[in-house]
Amino acid sequence: MVEIIASIVVFKTKACIINQTIASLLKSEYVIRLFIFDNSPTDKLRNEITEDNRITYLFNNENIGFGRAHNICIKKALHQCKYYIVLNPDVYFDGAIIKKMVELFDSDSEIGLVAPRILYPNGKLQLSCRSLPTPFDIAIRRIPFLRHFFPKRHKFHQFLHTSYDTTLNVPFLLGCFMMIRTNVLKEVGGFDERFFLYMEDLDLCRRINKKYKTLYFPEVNINHLYQRASAKQGYLFIIHLSSMIKYFTKWGWFKDQERKRINSELLRQPS
């Protein structure tokens, strides 16, 4: 049987929210282990999460960030499973989707990562596919009046130039649910720990997409309680800004030829 291990990183997360995620995930017989890595200041959640012998709760007693916490779990699992799932504590779904995602992986050895269609709780589509962003693309997305002046560019960045009903090879998929081939994680490495929070999903997707397909798979859905916290809380915006600076310093601010090539190829994908 295919064996899958997953990890969820939490920080002051309510038990009622994460238990919904846990219940969704553990409905799949493929999931043999789930790490809950708690970055919170107390281990209150330890006694509030669902009890299951597949769950390993890890309390850290300090917030070491999203990517670094997942990496600790990934390193424990690399030699124990065929696929690895990174997911947020605020998603819920039908556990049967995992079987369909495994079948997609098995159909093509060049697939490195698969992400599902993401819906808001009201059933509305969340735009989870992205082109590789320039600093200007991020400014357009975060500053509403700029969208009126550059609507075509904004739509392209959020993949509105094509159909969200089609399986697509996408260089940047939002990281609230990513299923990854374990040997691909071994090859490219886990998350870049320079990113405390934000942009780490973009960085990982980009590194995988250089060698493998990173697929948006709309035949399966998850629901996401998306908050856009960095747009509402000042200190999170500072963290987001810091991560953006690190990302563009790593990959290139304005002279990123790889980004230019990949984004040009996206326009040639079937719509």
Rank of each mutant, 00 (worst) to 15 (best):
F59H: 14
L241S: 14
K232Y: 02
A69H: 10
A15Q: 02
S131W: 01
E187M: 08
T13M: 03
Q257F: 15
Y216H: 07
F37V: 15
W253R: 05
L197H: 06
A231C: 06
A115C: 15
H148Q: 11
S128D: 05
D38S: 10
V184A: 09
S24M: 09
G175R: 00
K124S: 15
D52M: 12
M178S: 06
A15I: 07
P144T: 01
D106T: 07
K12A: 06
H161S: 04
I74K: 01
Y84K: 04
S109C: 07
N39W: 04
V114T: 10
L58G: 03
I138E: 01
F150S: 02
E187R: 12
H70D: 02
Y164Q: 06
G67V: 09
L87T: 08
S7R: 00
P121D: 08
H154G: 07
D90N: 15
E62H: 13
D192N: 15
D192Y: 11
P133W: 00
N53S: 15
G175L: 01
I72H: 13
K124T: 15
A6G: 05
T13E: 05
K82N: 15
N63Q: 08
N88P: 00
K250P: 09
I17D: 06
G234R: 13
I17Y: 03
N39H: 09
R117P: 01
V86T: 11
L113W: 02
K155Y: 13
N122A: 07
K210P: 04
M199A: 05
I140K: 00
E200N: 05
C81N: 08
N53L: 14
P41Y: 05
I8C: 04
K14V: 04
G190I: 03
I143M: 01
E200S: 03
I72T: 13
P135R: 02
M101D: 11
E103W: 05
L125N: 08
D201K: 05
Q233F: 12
D94M: 05
D106V: 07
F196T: 14
G234A: 13
R153V: 02
C73W: 01
H161L: 03
M244P: 03
H148M: 11
S163C: 00
L78C: 09
D192E: 14
N263S: 10
P133T: 01
M179A: 09
F254H: 15
E103V: 13
R117T: 07
D256V: 11
K232Q: 02
P218Q: 05
K211W: 08
P135I: 04
R207S: 06
P171W: 01
S28W: 04
N47H: 12
I8N: 00
M1A: 12
D38H: 11
N47S: 13
H148Y: 13
V91P: 02
F136L: 14
E265T: 14
G95E: 14
D90Y: 06
Y226I: 10
T134Q: 05
I111M: 11
K210L: 10
K82G: 14
F237Q: 00
C16V: 13
T42H: 10
D137Q: 02
Y247P: 01
K82H: 13
F105L: 06
R153L: 11
E29P: 13
I18H: 00
P121F: 07
G175P: 02
